[in-house]
Amino acid sequence: MMQPKIEVKNITVNYYSFNKGINSLKDFVTGFKFLNPFERKKVLEDVSITVYPGEVFGILGRNGAGKSTLLKSIAGILNPSEGSVVVNGTIAPLLAIGAGMEMELTGIENIRLIGSLLNYSKAEMDAKIEKIIAFSELSLEELQRPVKTFSSGMVSRMSFSLAVADTPDILIIDEVLAVGDRGFRDKCLDRVREIKVAGSTILFVSHNFDEMQKICTRGICIEKGKITAEGDFQKVGEYYKSLFK
């Protein structure tokens, strides 16, 4: 039995929002709300998935179903209030377009900054930066301009290159392939396949169903925070499509 790369067991994730506003400020003080100032909203309920090496795991669901929340819990950004997440390996999140980038800084500066946020040491970064730049197909001259002058396609090239230039253990792709020209998109999909062959695990969220069908092996469908279908991606895909009929 292979050791799973990702094991999510019965997690429940709550979003906490703060009771605010002038009306509630009074309640806040008089109703002793400051003892428990958060209002909870369940975003995921009792969700379990197990993903093995070499799998491309697709997550389907409508907007607001909890797909990104699941990815964030796996990446460690959100802590589930119940259940556990075990991840064997390092995660490279494919950042939403431009996320974490500082518009005023140059492309190179951003690559270094995000690299260090992704926990690459300076030495690792020095080794990687050539690959990243090569993969992005952006020229050095372009990368020395502030990111605010980039087109959204160029920004997504940078985001993608950061995550895939090296072969990560676990790659998280959240809705990011949408931008970028055709050539680069195909290149990205090819690269994702290569990473899969290398034995890494990929979590894939997208609304581009055709693209997902090309590479996903297994998957789940999430509705209102609960898993309603899981298993072979084709079957999950059919179930997902039937929701819209």
């Binding site: 500082e102 005023e104 260090s116 946020l117 040491s121």
Partner: peptide, 18 residues
């Protein structure tokens, strides 16, 4: 630990530039 220092240095450098 080493990466922690790297990250804080990089964030600081960014703040100073900004």
């Amino acid at each position: 630990m080493k990466n922690t220092i790297d990250t804080v240095i990089n964030l600081t450098r960014r703040n100073l530039k900004l």
